[in-house]
Amino acid sequence: MAINKLPFGRYHVIDSLLSKGERVKTSEIQRAILYELQIKVSSKTINNDLNDMRDSKALGYFAPIEKDLSKKAYYYSDPDYTIKAFGLKDADINALQFYANTINQYKDYEVFKDFATAIEKILAVLAGSKGAPGIQKTRSIVQTERTPLITGGHLIPKIVEAINTKYVIAFKYQKFDDEKVKEVKLQPYLLKEDRHLWYVLGKNHKGHLITYALDRIKDFTISNDKFLPDDFDFEDYFKYSFGITVTDEVPVNTVLSFTPFQGKYIKALPIHPTQKILLDNDQELRISVEVKPAYEFYEKILGYGANVRVISPPEIVSDLKERLKQALNLYK
């Protein structure tokens, strides 16, 4: 997260130092921010923060910050002043708490640790401020879906680096259904999460776009080979997908009929961006989706059990019948 996106935490650290009535040097402010927020900032950033606290109409602090030229340090000319009288509003605190709880599910991934820690530090600083709004400490009022730590998560920052710097990555890869280990060289284009698993998409030496799961990657390295990336539209690439799998097939218009009760959920949370409502009455909710049917699509539809019926096309109906027969055979 860019430093300039965390100004309020810095303002409160600066305020806590200056409100003690002492002269404070820029280096002391830097150390305090590093300790409180675990963020390294430049002296230029500190000077900008001091100017903003003093002069910014948008902030409205108009803090009485003066500089002691002899000591090259800053202080409040009004010893009773504090920005805690302005502070963050309840809505601001709630937004930070919500964001912290949301991103907390990824805290075990190295690349996300700084994000979560920085927000937690800001909330901790505000919690200790006399003028801060009430912050819930004893109970959680927002609970998000928990994401298990997946093997390969430590590769995320390295792959991000390779994508940004346009370097080819190399690794060993083994599919779940293949005993053979492949040596792979890949031009990385995109990191994508799907159902709590992470994938890297890129082009091989033949120029083919391929997807690899991070949990199956071994001996990862960033090579010294640079590449010139193509302009690739991944939004369009995944347009007809229900997950990470994208086939070469032509998209199929698929019509689904849901029970009225299940239909309420489908309307509240559409199952696909291409979803269109064809019929909505007391008997059914009928929708259509444009899809390249793959494993994730069938898994999704089968998950609705008796609450959905595929009307068309015939080939998908046939595939689903076969899968249901195979499932029934497990209970014979």
Rank of each mutant, 00 (worst) to 15 (best):
M1D: 10
I3P: 03
N4T: 11
N4P: 08
K5T: 15
H12P: 01
D15N: 09
S16E: 02
S16W: 04
L17C: 07
L18H: 05
L18I: 04
S19T: 00
T26G: 07
T26Y: 06
S27Y: 06
E28S: 14
E28V: 11
I29K: 01
I29D: 00
A32L: 02
A32C: 03
A32I: 00
L34T: 11
S42F: 03
S42P: 06
K44H: 09
I46W: 00
D52N: 15
D52M: 08
A58L: 09
A58E: 13
F62T: 00
I65T: 01
K67T: 14
D68T: 10
S70G: 15
K72A: 13
S77Q: 06
S77C: 04
P79N: 06
I83H: 07
F86K: 10
F86W: 09
G87P: 06
K89V: 08
K89E: 13
N94A: 06
L96P: 04
A100E: 11
N101L: 06
N101T: 09
I103L: 14
Y106W: 14
K107V: 01
F112M: 01
F115M: 03
A118K: 10
I119T: 07
I122P: 01
A124C: 12
G128P: 05
K130C: 07
G131A: 03
G131L: 02
Q136G: 15
R139S: 14
Q143E: 07
T144W: 09
E145W: 14
T147A: 14
L149D: 05
L149M: 06
I150L: 06
T151R: 13
L155I: 05
K158N: 13
V160R: 13
I163N: 02
N164S: 15
N164V: 07
K166A: 02
Y173A: 03
Q174I: 02
K175E: 09
D177G: 08
D178S: 12
D178Y: 12
V181N: 10
V181L: 09
E183S: 14
L186K: 00
L186F: 05
L186P: 00
L197E: 13
L197W: 12
L201W: 10
L201F: 15
L201R: 01
N204V: 13
K206D: 11
G207D: 12
Y212V: 01
D215L: 01
I217E: 04
K218W: 03
D219M: 07
F220W: 02
T221A: 04
I222D: 02
D225T: 05
D225I: 00
D225F: 06
K226L: 07
D230L: 10
F234S: 05
D236A: 15
F238P: 03
S241P: 00
S241G: 05
V246H: 07
D248H: 14
E249S: 14
V250N: 05
T254H: 03
F258A: 02
G263K: 04
P270A: 05
P270S: 05
K276N: 08
K276F: 06
D280Y: 05
D282L: 13
E284R: 13
I287P: 02
V289R: 05
E290C: 09
K292E: 06
P293D: 09
A306G: 13
V308Y: 00
V308E: 01
R309V: 06
R309H: 13
I311T: 07
I311Q: 10
S312K: 15
P313W: 04
P314D: 01
V317S: 08
S318T: 08
Q326T: 10
Y331R: 08
Y331D: 04
Y331N: 03
